[in-house]
């Protein structure tokens, strides 16, 4: 039995692809999020009248200057923030229903690790809660730590790791869940160029094998163009969508694509749609 399991080297299966119908398209209509000002001043319009459609299995990046509402949009989709007005529908369900079905995987802007748990047990934690059997958990933890290059650090505690390593633990934790919808908030911001490029390729591979919907927040236009089907540019105060740029580059994309004309003209196109920056 065990042997048969080990012999299974079908990588697509390993990464948790499934054939069940994916109802993970996201429709955002007239969404606004306003934060009341604590000192009685004008409320902050973090997001104003956002309309956006994300197809099932699409890879969408959110870019825009700091404070333009990227994190807020991600959090609202994840049911961590309630909209002031407007609706979000994910495959016909509300974000709350999707959350209760445990279909979200979130990589937070700050990694949010539990410092009393080792790296391995941090990655394991959400799977324990979801009731995934122990052998399967162990297998996935190993697999994901290898993926993010932290296999040898499994027994360490978070405070013994660098910022970039902590970030990668957060990524491994979210991926290990095999979420239908993966929400990533600047997941690679603290990483060096080499690690980042490796993870770009890995993430692209996982995404194409598992058909999950990914929403990816980043400050790097290059990164957004390289990874995405669609780049959404937000502008600040109030947070609005100033442009949606379709990225029709062929897949799978290798690193060499960054040297092509098409790639660079797309990067320029996205950059030019930044407002007032």
């Amino acid at each position: 039995m065990l042997r048969a399991k080990k012999m299974n080297v079908d990588y697509s299966k390993d990464l948790g692809s499934d054939t069940e119908e994916l109802k993970t398209g996201i429709i955002i209509e007239n969404l606004s999020v306003r934060f009341p000002d604590k000192n009685g001043g004008d409320p902050v319009e973090a997001l104003q009248n956002i309309n956006l459609e994300i197809k099932p299995g699409e890879f969408v990046s959110l870019v825009g200057p700091s404070g333009c509402g990227k994190t807020t949009l991600l959090r609202t989709i994840a049911d961590l923030q309630q909209p002031t007005t407007g609706t979000i529908s994910i495959g016909g369900l509300t974000p709350r229903e999707i959350r209760l079905q445990q279909k979200f995987g979130i990589v937070f802007q700050n990694p949010v690790l539990y410092e009393w748990r080792t790296v391995r047990r941090n990655v394991c934690m959400p799977m324990e809660i979801m009731g995934i059997p122990k052998p399967e958990r162990t297998r996935r933890v190993t697999q994901m730590l290898e993926l993010v290059g932290l296999y040898n650090f499994g027994k360490m505690h978070p405070h013994e790791l660098s910022g970039g390593m902590q970030q990668r633990v957060g990524i491994a934790r979210a991926l290990a869940l095999r979420p239908k919808i993966l929400l990533m908030d600047e997941p690679f911001s603290a990483l060096d160029e080499f690690t980042k490029e490796k993870l770009h390729l890995d993430l692209q591979r996982i995404w194409s094998k598992t058909k999950k919907t990914i929403i990816f927040v980043t400050h790097s236009i290059q990164e957004a163009v390289f990874l995405s089907d669609k780049v959404v540019v937000l502008s600040p105060h109030p947070g609005r969508i100033s442009a949606v740029v379709d990225i029709n580059l062929p897949r799978p994309r290798g690193l060499e694509i960054k040297d092509t004309m098409e790639f660079n003209s797309l990067v320029s196109k996205v950059r030019n749609s930044f407002e007032g920056v």
């Binding site: 994840a78 049911d79 961590l80 959350r99 209760l100 079905q101 445990q102 979200f104 979130i106 937070f108 700050n110 949010v112 539990y114 959400p126 809660i129 979801m130 869940l177």
Partner: peptide
């Protein structure tokens, strides 16, 4: 911290 609660919340613990 709130963020630690939010991780739990996000997986409907």
């Amino acid at each position: 911290e709130k963020a630690k609660h939010e991780l739990m919340y996000s997986i409907a613990a």
